[in-house]
Structure formats: C-alpha cells, structure tokens
Nucleic acid binder design. Sequence first.
DNA 1: ATAAGACTTGTCATTTTTTGACAAATTTAT
DNA 2: ATAAATTTGTCAAAAAATGACAAGTCTTAT
Lengths: 108, 108
Amino acid sequence: MTSLMETTFGEYIRLLRNEHELTLTQLAAKLNLDSANLSKIENGKRDFDEKRLPKLAKIFNLNLTELRNEYLTDQIGKQIYETNCTKQLLQVAEEKAEYRRLKNIKTA
Amino acid sequence: MTSLMETTFGEYIRLLRNEHELTLTQLAAKLNLDSANLSKIENGKRDFDEKRLPKLAKIFNLNLTELRNEYLTDQIGKQIYETNCTKQLLQVAEEKAEYRRLKNIKTA
DNA sequence: ATAAGACTTGTCATTTTTTGACAAATTTAT
DNA sequence: ATAAATTTGTCAAAAAATGACAAGTCTTAT
C-alpha cells in the first residue's frame, strides 16, 4: 500500500486540485457540486460525501481503494479527535471491534 | 480506570438490567423511553442516545466518566467494525487525529 | 390449553442532522 | 479598480436517527 497522507481529506483534495491547477468551480463542476460547498469541504467545514469517491478517483486517476482508505482513516481520525479518545481507549475500541467481528460472523 | 467491558454497549445495558432484575419495561420507564426501543438497543439494532448516559449512570450508580468511555469505545469500535478498518489503517487514523490536534490547537 | 408477562419486530410520524443551492461577502492577482 | 477565486451565511430539501405504537413470539405459571 502507498503510504497514506497526513492531512485531512479536505486538505488532500485541495492538494490534488492545486496540483492539477483547477479552480474550485472547475473541480466542483466535475464532482457535480457547488463550488461554495467544495470550499467548505476543503476547509473541513463539511464532509465529502462518500458517494463521490469514485468520481474523485476518476478525475485524478487515483486508485479507488487507496482513496477510500484515505477517506476512512480521515473519518475515524476525526472521530478520535472529536471525542478526545486516548490511545488507551482506542485500544479498547479496537478490542470491541474484534469482539463484534467474532460475534457477527457467528450470528449472521 | 476500571477495565472496560468487552461487550457491545447494548449487551452491557442488558447485563446491568439483569443484575438488577429489572424488566425492559421497568428500565425503559426510568430512562424515559419505550421498552420496544430499549430492546432494540440491547440487541444492537439501535443506538443508545448519548443524552441518556447521565440518567443511566444514576440508575445503576455508575461513574459517568467511565460509562462515557464505555460508550465512546463502543461507538468507535462499531465504526472500526463496520468499515472493516484494519489495525494498520487504524494506526493511520490515529496519526490523523494527532494531526488535527496539532492543527486545531494552533488554529482555534 | 391458555392466560399473563417479558421480549422482539415492523412500521411510521416526528425530530434531528446532513446536504445542496444560492446570494453576498472577502480575498487575491493583475 | 476590476475580475476571478474563494469563503461565509442562510435556508430549503434530503437523509438519517428517534419515539411511539401495534402486533407478533416465546416462556412460564396455573
């Protein structure tokens, strides 16, 4: 796996956009959304809608799976940040995830 | 800190309820919710509303902070599970959380 | 067998949250 | 100063979460 970004997902989009010298308006059009909202996304004031990941990957010719990982880690990182979840608690959360895995494979 | 549960939050509530020999109806009443919905919560089909944590703590005479941690780790664990987030990706998510911390302390 | 209590499931209206869209700033580059 | 780019505020629409109730199953006592 390619090493993932140490940025927010919004910053990552901005990075890509700048690399490709697109304006907000131009990229927003390609993504089928409003430039004002894309601005908010890049500035972390709104979330990028997961449904648009395939489109985003196509526009910048990125591997969708890796992009999804970028997105996923951003989302979870955000939650960790917002809830002030410590490493110790995160460890517990991981164990609980594992518990769900065991349980649900049996159950389903 | 007391060691946290390796159960879902719903299962934990059920555990507490059974220990105290309360019916769904009885506990639901104390929590100001419908017994049918409490059943769903215990069975993981709905989320417990965070707003009720203080009430829940009071009913069972629990430390609110610890209960919150129980809740928090359940929530994040659930997200880890649902998104199939691997340990490796979780590590990245943690770094991103750290990045947000640094950034937002500066920014705010 | 059946009646009662405990629990579960399905559905739907209400509430809350998220999203899309537009107008009006503000900033940046020329 | 102008024009383009970006940001911010607001609000209606869409989507998701919640509350409530009805109807179902399952168990247990009689």
